[in-house]
């Protein structure tokens, strides 16, 4: 008999990969699960928006962008924050979070690209967010 895979570890792998933009080291998933257990008592995301983002990873960037604007302290954003904290403190990933000084052209390009991507994601993400029952400025899970 094999143990059922821990859904929190799977959630952690997905969210850390998304935040990082590439595969995170193996310890990211279990450490994410430990953090969620310590801070929220430990069930996988189950609110409609969060659950949809996990079930259908294509939705994740859209719902993240929409939640960032509409519900910054929603369960999905709080879990993404945990994923970011876990990845940032892995030595293999630290560089991805370090300040990156750039001259004017690089800075402007980075800002313009981020604005375009955000506009696109919001265009699709906001309707999806409200369709899934997301609510404006809804609140977070209670930290343990």
């Amino acid at each position: 008999m094999t143990d059922a895979p821990d859904p929190l570890i799977a959630e952690g792998r997905l969210l850390t990969r998304y935040v990082l933009g590439r595969s995170p080291p193996d310890e990211a998933g279990p450490r994410y699960a430990a953090a969620v257990r310590a801070r929220f008592g430990g069930s996988p995301l189950h609110d409609p928006v969060g659950a949809a983002a996990i079930r259908q990873p294509l939705f994740l960037p859209l719902l993240d962008a929409a939640s960032g604007l509409a519900a910054p302290h929603s369960p999905l954003r709080e879990r993404l924050l945990i994923a970011a904290a876990i990845t940032e403190t892995l030595p293999q990933c630290a560089h991805d979070f370090m300040p990156r000084p750039m001259p004017w052209p690089g800075l402007i390009l980075t800002l313009v690209l981020a604005a375009l991507l955000t506009a696109l994601r919001l265009l699709l993400g906001l309707p999806l967010f409200f369709l899934l029952g997301g609510r404006w400025r809804s609140h977070s899970e209670q930290p343990a």
């Binding site: 935040v19 962008a65 960032g68 993404l80 991805d96 800002l111 981020a114 991507l117």
Partner: peptide, 12 residues
């Protein structure tokens, strides 16, 4: 912003 864009903007 979404986390990946937020991260690259913040780093810059």
């Amino acid at each position: 912003l979404a986390f990946p864009e937020g991260k690259s903007v913040l780093r810059a």
